[in-house]
């Protein structure tokens, strides 16, 4: 049962975080050469979709700024030509989880859509909240069933410290929060007042 719900990140703040994360991606993946972004179903995909919008807007700005400036273009693009947003996919990890027998509610699966080969790719796994690390562990297993990427990185919007059960830490992190066991972090994307993050206190 929900006892208390508190907004910890307001829409304006969340928008800044998304912009910073897309800048970090641009910086660390020059030209997005061989980079793919893969959201973990279901909520990582919501996050990835929103991030992709912000990233696309930033890329459009950059292309605009750099028209007529070949040197500047090389800064963001290792390859000659236009800078394009990386391919995006969705990965479902339900069948790879180790905790389905420990839950009171059964898990329902979602679709996996990886319309590209992973061979030689730099994969950025995207999820909204990092808690115990078990979802990411399952995500790595699921990912490797599709091929052998060159590198895998992790991007999360919120990292809940103090409760990680696996040695898994994000390469890109929107924000860190300290939470208790009876609290939940929920990212609300489609709200009339704008996307925000709430901290929910529950009884169980």
């Amino acid at each position: 049962m929900i006892l208390e719900s508190r907004v910890i990140v307001r829409p304006a703040h969340l928008s800044l975080i998304l912009q910073r994360l897309s800048e970090e991606l641009l910086e660390r993946h020059p030209g997005f050469h061989n980079t793919v972004l893969i959201g973990l179903q279901p909520r990582g995909v919501f996050f990835l979709n929103r991030l992709a919008q912000v990233l696309q807007a930033r890329i459009d700005d950059l292309s605009h700024e750099m028209d007529g400036s070949p040197e500047g273009h090389r800064l963001v693009s290792a390859q000659p030509g236009r800078l394009n947003i990386p391919a995006q996919g969705a990965l479902d990890v339900t069948f790879y989880r180790d905790d389905f027998r420990h839950r009171s509610e059964p898990l329902s699966a979602h679709t996996t859509q990886l319309p590209f080969s992973l061979e030689g790719k730099k994969v950025v796994l995207v999820d909204d909240v990092l808690f115990t690390g078990r979802t990411i562990r399952a995500g790595l297993d699921a990912l490797l069933d599709f091929g052998r990427p060159d590198r895998v990185e992790l991007m999360v919007l919120v990292s809940r410290r103090l409760r990680q059960e696996f040695p898994i830490h994000p390469d890109y992190c929107g924000m860190e929060v300290n939470t208790h066991d009876d609290e939940r972090v929920r990212v609300c994307w489609d709200e009339p007042e704008g996307a925000h993050i709430t901290l929910i206190k529950t009884t169980g």
Partner: peptide, 26 residues
């Protein structure tokens, strides 16, 4: 319907290069 939607996901699995998932390894 639940069986069908779950089977949709498994049909995607058996058309992958690696056609198995570790769900029932125990």
């Amino acid at each position: 319907d639940l069986i069908f939607t779950t089977a949709d996901n498994f049909k995607e699995v058996i058309n992958r290069p690696i056609k198995k998932v570790p769900s029932l390894r125990d």
